[in-house]
Design a protein around this nucleic acid. Structure first.
Lengths: 183, 183
DNA sequence: ATCATTTTTTTGACTGGAAGGTCAAAGTCA
DNA sequence: TGACTTTGACCTTCCAGTCAAAAAAATGAT
């Protein structure tokens, strides 16, 4: 076995990660990945048997990183947010009655931000407005600490990592959380 | 202008909703939708100019329903969950440092459940395990009410509407929330 | 009412392009 | 010389979108 290799496999994986994180599986072509990795398409098939397997390998790496990170958590105490509950209740009620709609929204909202065409602007703006309204509902008339916390929850519940950078920067979110914890 | 029509347009929209909510945009073909609507493909193009426009129309309907539902919320008071904070902090830290990975996970986790091939079982199981661990972290050693609430948050944060029915039924979730609110 | 004509709705057959995957040959290194 | 790595050319399948023509509905004149 060749122990030393230039890292071609690794650079393909890296390219795949970049590609798959900006577009959905079906929207990413092997050509795309090949170009990103500065490699010809058949070479990918030398290292990975299929697109599916390449995707799984890529996912695996990302996922294990997340897992490692999330479970380095300190333990603490409790209490809960009534207002958030009311919001969640409505959310869940909708979930129960129209799961299909919610699935559609959750899965495809990312499309807005990868599509460049101006014809998507309307729907994009509409969704941004929605996220902001949710944030307002959860933060109005709550004391400062909880307010910021609520915003963070909102961000995650309403959009998670899927929002574009500009929406609410990770730095801002962290500041909010840190501020809440410092209290 | 013809005021009366059989509702062909509507049944196409309904079929599109079913299709787009079970598979991602690129994975749904116009043929799929046509079959679901008991219609031939070109007829879809008679009512909608393109796949993109059909998708937008479908999204719009689902989205407005969600909006109407979510903003019928009663107002309440506050206080917050320390433990959830710790979790969120880790989550957000990861988000800041590897946004790409998180995007990939968030967008593609749905794929597990639409793919039928047994080759996806491993990765599926792994992810389910993760969701359960998160639920545990957020619920252990918290008083009963908050515990259930934490589970609901977990479900939404970790998987939202994207989990398969069996994972944690909407009914179960609602029961949990209602119980929490009743207290 | 009836039938011819026009308008609206529906479809079969086709096209062009994109993308996953293959393969035999060429290049590289030991 | 032989194993490993890389690539150009090609194949096949799938799918969004087109189009001309058929089928159904409306219109309207006698």
């Amino acid at each position: 076995m060749t122990v030393r290799q230039n890292g071609v496999r690794e650079s393909i994986l890296e390219a795949a990660k970049v590609a798959f994180s900006s577009k959905s599986y079906a929207d990413v072509s092997m050509e795309d990945i090949a170009k990103l990795a500065n490699v010809k398409k058949p070479l990918i098939y030398y290292y990975f048997p299929s697109k599916e397997e390449l995707f799984k390998a890529t996912w695996d790496e990302a996922f294990h990183k997340l897992e490692d990170k999330v479970f380095g958590i300190s333990e603490n105490d409790n209490k809960y947010v009534r207002k958030a509950k009311a919001f969640l209740r409505a959310y869940i009620d909708f979930l129960r009655n129209d799961r299909q709609s919610l699935r559609l929204i959750e899965r495809e909202k990312t499309r807005f931000y990868s599509e460049t065409g101006s014809s998507w602007q309307h729907i994009k703006t509409e969704y941004d407005g929605f996220v902001n309204r949710v944030a307002d509902v959860l933060s109005t008339e709550i004391d400062t600490d909880s307010k910021e916390y609520a915003r963070a929850i909102t961000d995650i519940v309403g959009s998670s990592a899927l929002l574009p950078e500009g929406q609410m920067s990770p730095d801002t979110i962290e500041l909010i959380i840190i501020k809440g914890l410092a209290k």
